[in-house]
């Protein structure tokens, strides 16, 4: 394997090199403590050493507000929204967020493949970066290590004084061509040490979660939950959406748009006439967690949680998905027979 070395003080030069070829999106400092992905205009603003962004790269492929069609009320004509490929370098992405995109790819490709999402996905060069797990990351428990290069074209692993640069794909080689880097010194990047773990092998989680259906943990979690839906909105694998009709102020036309929705929100299951099928916060919490660890993994063999820790880090009430799952695990070990 051909490994190069990128010294920290050359990150800015690399960003400039990439910007000459394609638009670059990368983490940049926002608030005092926060980092967010944004289009790069100033190479010096890029931050590669960060714990997590509040929103993942999902926002570029399934934007929070996404036009589906435009209509004209005067003649009832309509046209599909124009969707352009992102065609950019996504720089400084963590392995769990890349894994989340695999899951979204699956959702929007299986069955009836959807143009809006898949079109935007085209032309992306993925440049990953390793990270030091903080108190919320638990990707290791779902099989995604901080050094996982799967899905990336180039991967940067943090070592002393900079990064080891691994060219993973041909595309990755092309984008780096012309940017001279020295060979990497011997010495391995840190594989990262997780502080959070799910105490069960991934392969057995489905079984445990199936048994948790009538667990008291859902009601207990509901007591602490305000039902604000933040956990859905920051989740990189949540893709649920609602559809909204917008009419312009001249009332001559408008757009049909989809907007992010979340299963923690009360109206999510409401049908015409007002019936809500998951009326309680306990049922909604259960659905959220089982969706990540059972319902969708039943179909695909992959958990729909990538261990990024966002739902926990950004929960004002401090509800931890790892604690919920571990509680289910320990209950299961005590009473395995309650399995459905």
């Amino acid at each position: 394997m051909d490994l190069k070395f990128l010294a920290s003080d050359r990150v800015e030069a690399l960003v400039s090199h990439l910007m000459h070829q394609k638009a670059v999106y990368a983490p940049q400092r926002m608030g005092r403590h926060s980092v967010a992905l944004d289009k790069v205009t100033n190479p010096a603003a890029v931050v590669l050493d960060y714990s997590r962004t509040m929103q993942s790269v999902k926002k570029y492929f399934q934007p929070p507000r996404d036009e589906l069609l435009k209509f004209d009320l005067t003649d009832q004509s309509f046209a599909a929204a124009t969707v352009e490929p992102l065609d950019a370098v996504l720089l400084g992405i963590h392995s769990y967020d890349r894994a989340a995109i695999d899951r979204l790819d699956y959702n929007f490709s299986q069955g009836q493949p959807e143009k809006n999402y898949l079109k935007r996905r085209e032309g992306v060069i993925w440049v990953g970066v390793s990270y030091e797990p903080d108190e919320f990351h638990f990707s290791g428990s779902v099989g995604i290590g901080p050094l996982e290069t799967e899905g990336f074209d180039v991967f940067l692993s943090r070592v002393g004084g900079g990064y080891q640069v691994e060219t993973v794909t041909e595309k990755g080689g092309e984008i780096l061509a012309g940017f001279d880097l020295p060979q990497a010194e011997q010495g391995k990047p840190s594989p990262g040490h997780f502080h959070q773990h799910i105490f069960l092998p991934q392969a057995r989680l489905n079984e445990v979660m199936a048994a948790s259906y009538s667990s008291p943990v859902w009601e207990e979690t509901a007591q602490k939950c305000v039902g604000c839906g933040s956990c859905n909105i920051v989740c990189p694998t949540c893709y649920c959406f609602n559809v909204e009709e917008n009419v312009d102020i001249k009332v001559t036309g408008g757009t049909r748009e989809r907007i992010w929705d979340g299963c923690m929100l009360r109206e999510f299951t409401e049908v015409a006439g007002g019936e809500v099928f998951r009326g309680g916060l306990a049922e909604r919490q259960r659905h959220r967690v089982l969706r990540k660890f059972k319902y969708l993994s039943d179909r695909t063999g992959h958990p729909w949680c990538v261990g990024c820790g966002r739902c926990t880090a950004y929960c004002t009430a401090g509800i931890s998905i790892v604690s919920i799952v571990n509680r289910c695990v320990s209950d299961f070990e005590k009473h395995p027979t309650t399995a459905v």
Partner: peptide, 23 residues
């Protein structure tokens, strides 16, 4: 009866446990 918004298994509204009512 569930809230089938997209009809094509994408939007998540009609999900009952692991099943999509629209599919």
């Amino acid at each position: 009866e569930r809230r089938m918004k997209c009809g094509v298994g994408k939007c998540g509204h009609c999900q009952i446990n692991h099943s999509y009512v629209c599919q």
